[in-house]
Simulated scan of single mutants.
Amino acid sequence: MKTTFIAGFLFLNLSSAQHTGNQLYANPDGNSGYAEVIHNAYAEKITDNGAQLIYRMNILDNIKADSYVVTLGLNQEATSPKECNAKINKRIDGFKSALKKWGIDDDDIAVDFISQTKIYDFKAAVNGAQTSFEEQEKGFEIKKNIIIRLHKMTLFDELVESASEFDIYNIAKVDYFCKDQQKVYDSMLSEANKILEIRKTASNKDINNPDLYGKPKISINFYSIQPANQYKKYTAYESADVVFKSDYYSDKSYVKQEERKSNTFYYDGRQPDLYDSVLNADTPMVGLQYVMEVVVTYTKY
């Protein structure tokens, strides 16, 4: 069996935060709703079935993002589309001007037109003891998103505070980006090679004739996971029990109103015990997590 050093090409399978945005409310579990990418963490690390010899390595890396893209949503109502568009554009232009004092210029901002819809309401008409409701057109609503690129997450609080001055409160989502993914790939691949050499050394003594195996086939799967896909939610409280008693002959009714319980979200990234090696394992930051799965297969001649 010949010595092999894995030299792969960059293959990305990007799945789409300390800062995550309101996308956490997309479903009851508290995550963004994207399908989670799961590798087979419990597959055998070394498999020898007589015809093939297979090595599997799984690496995890925690990477600080180089830039962030924040999506803010806003809407505007008015009696006509022209008035509606003028009002929402005035808010957007004011917000963009405010961002310039932090070095966020027009190249870092984009506006996405989402929708224009009619708004309807009901008008009540009373005729004696009868009240009727007629649906009528009330006006129009326009929705737009402002998409902003940040190179420093320290500006996030200022962005949120400034947005509120223009009645922009909906932080839809935050995406994280790494500038040099090739560097991340190379570092993880180097780690996978170290583990491969250790396993080959450990397993060679159990192989009857290593020279019977030809050149290996190598499979590399490499992908990143956005932080928002890994947040979880819980509500911590204890509530008293209330027993309701009703009287069939009484006209009294009871309404139970509970206090609002706040949801707690927390970051729960990939667990390190599912991987052969974890790079930057003890970092406290919330960032991108990269996963590399390497399979090296030797086949007998």
Rank of each mutant, 00 (worst) to 15 (best):
V111W: 03
I171D: 09
K2M: 13
A86G: 05
M188I: 02
Q23V: 14
I171H: 09
F222K: 14
I114D: 02
T3P: 04
N229D: 15
L72E: 01
D107M: 02
Q257F: 03
T154S: 07
S253K: 10
L196A: 04
R56H: 13
G33I: 00
Q116P: 02
I195G: 12
S162H: 02
K300P: 00
V70D: 03
P216R: 15
C84H: 03
V184L: 13
P227H: 06
L14V: 09
G94K: 13
T71M: 06
E134D: 14
A202M: 06
I104H: 15
S162I: 00
V70N: 06
L196H: 09
N22F: 12
A125Q: 15
N22C: 03
F140V: 01
N209W: 07
K45C: 05
N31K: 07
S162W: 00
R91V: 09
I63N: 08
N27T: 01
R91G: 09
D93E: 05
H19D: 00
K64D: 04
R260D: 08
Q230R: 07
N89I: 10
T299C: 03
E44D: 10
Y275G: 10
S80T: 15
Y185V: 09
E44S: 14
V160P: 00
N31T: 02
D107Q: 14
K45I: 09
K82Y: 01
I142D: 03
A98I: 08
G214D: 15
T131V: 11
Q23M: 13
K183C: 07
S115C: 02
Y237E: 05
T235N: 04
N75M: 04
E197Q: 07
Y266P: 01
E141Y: 12
A240W: 02
K215Q: 12
I59L: 13
F9Q: 15
F140K: 02
I63S: 01
G94H: 08
G33S: 04
S187K: 12
S187I: 02
